Simulated assay, not measured.
Amino acid sequence: MTKARLTALFAIPFLAFWTYFMVSAFGSAKCHNLIYPAQDRLAACRGGDARLGFLMTDAQRAGNAFWQGLALAELGQTEDARTAFARSFLLKWQAAGQSLPRFERFVAEDLRQLSAPSVTEETREIWRDALKDPRPR
């Protein structure tokens, strides 16, 4: 095999994988940015789960579930938002290794995100309700 063919043999698959993951990652970034409309953020979160979910850690899945909950609450889908927040808490508990101090750091990060001016008090109440009882309904 020539050097050019060998280069092509490795370069083409590398570029294909790199393009897939970079496009997916940039598309998922919209999920975490409150300047976008809730519908767009929700679509980005769900798309990120579908495209990159197999690579995500529990902490990343928990963050994604939290942002989905924010978008769903903003869209008025209260029960779905509560379910997303509850899933987020369960994943954070797993990611924390069932360590209360580590779990509290995750919750503190949620509180920081919830303090944004664009987040409504109703959304905060849904989040608090899910924190009190994160079991699926």
Rank of each mutant, 00 (worst) to 15 (best):
A38E: 09
N64G: 02
F85I: 03
N64D: 05
K92M: 14
S88I: 03
T120E: 06
T123A: 15
L111S: 08
A4C: 04
D40C: 02
L91V: 03
W18S: 09
Q60M: 03
A108S: 13
A108F: 06
P13Q: 12
A96S: 13
C45H: 07
A130L: 10
Q68F: 02
G27P: 00
R137N: 03
T7L: 15
F106S: 14
G53T: 08
A50F: 14
Q39I: 13
C31Q: 09
I12E: 09
A84W: 03
G69E: 01
R87C: 01
H32L: 13
R41C: 07
F66N: 10
P101D: 06
R135M: 10
S28W: 09
R102D: 13
A50I: 10
G48W: 07
Y36F: 15
A108N: 10
K132A: 14
I35Y: 03
P136L: 15
F54P: 02
Q60A: 11
C45R: 08
L90G: 04
A95N: 02
Q68N: 08
D40S: 08
R46V: 07
I126E: 02
A38C: 02
Q94N: 12
F103C: 11
A8Y: 03
T83N: 06
L91P: 00
E79W: 11
A81L: 09
D58E: 12
D58N: 15
I12K: 05
V107C: 05
I12V: 13
K3F: 15
E121F: 03
A38I: 00
R46A: 07
D49W: 09
G27D: 11
P136T: 15
A62N: 00
N33V: 14
Q113V: 07
K3R: 10
L6M: 13
G97M: 05
W18H: 12
T19V: 01
E121W: 01
R105D: 04
E125S: 10
P134E: 02
S118G: 00
R128M: 07
G97W: 11
R137F: 02
R102V: 15
A16Q: 02
R46E: 05
R82D: 01
A84I: 01
R124K: 14
D110K: 13
G69L: 08
R128Y: 14
P101G: 12
F106L: 10
A50C: 01
R51W: 11
R137I: 13
L100W: 08
W127P: 00
V119H: 11
E104V: 01
L34F: 11
A96W: 03
F66S: 07
A43L: 12
F103S: 08
C31F: 05
F103A: 08
L70E: 11
R135E: 04
Y20T: 05
P117E: 03
K92E: 06
S88K: 06
T78C: 04
Q68Y: 06
T83A: 15
A29I: 06
M22S: 11
G76V: 04
